[in-house]
Amino acid sequence: MAAKKTIKIKQIGSPIRRPEHQRQTLIGLGLNKMHKVVERQDTPEVRGAIAKIPHLVQVID
């Protein structure tokens, strides 16, 4: 079985003064502090969450 593809996501924006749904999306991705990097499986759900908050996160290659 092949290994699942993963992506690294870095938080680059603060959730201060952002709508609650954007804060919850960050928490759902496992981000809660500036410049934190997490590794998640590359799924459509994760890509959709990233697309909702592109001003707060950055995908690292």
Rank of each mutant, 00 (worst) to 15 (best):
A51V: 10
R18W: 02
T6A: 08
V46H: 08
I50M: 09
Q41E: 15
K52Y: 02
A51D: 14
R23T: 13
A2C: 01
R17V: 04
I60D: 09
E39C: 12
K52R: 11
G30E: 04
V38D: 10
Q11F: 02
T6P: 00
T6N: 05
Q11W: 00
L31P: 02
I50V: 15
P19Q: 13
K33Q: 11
L26E: 05
Q22G: 02
H55G: 14
G30R: 05
G30P: 07
V38H: 11
L31Q: 05
G13L: 04
L26A: 04
K5F: 00
V57Y: 06
R17F: 06
P44W: 01
P54G: 14
V38E: 11
G28C: 10
V57P: 06
K52A: 13
A49H: 07
R18E: 13
K8M: 03
L26G: 01
L29R: 03
V57S: 13
R47C: 14
V46Q: 07
A49E: 15
G30F: 05
K36L: 11
I53N: 11
L26N: 01
R18M: 13
Q58K: 15
L56M: 14
T25L: 06
K52D: 08
K36R: 12
P19Y: 02
V57M: 12
L31K: 00
V59G: 10
D61C: 09
K10F: 04
V38K: 07
N32Y: 09
H55Y: 10
K36H: 10
T6H: 09
R40A: 12
K5E: 09
K52I: 01
G48T: 11
S14R: 04
P54H: 07
M1H: 02
Q41L: 15
A3M: 08
I9H: 00
R47Q: 15
L29H: 01
K8I: 01
P54N: 11
V38M: 14
G13H: 02
M1L: 06
R40L: 15
G48L: 09
A3C: 03
M1W: 01
G28Q: 06
K33I: 11
Q22R: 06
V59D: 15
I9D: 02
I53M: 13
V37S: 12
Q24P: 00
G13Y: 03
D61Q: 15
P54R: 10
P19L: 04
I16R: 04
A49S: 15
I9G: 03
M1D: 08
T6V: 08
V57R: 05
G13I: 05
Q11I: 02
K4W: 01
G48H: 05
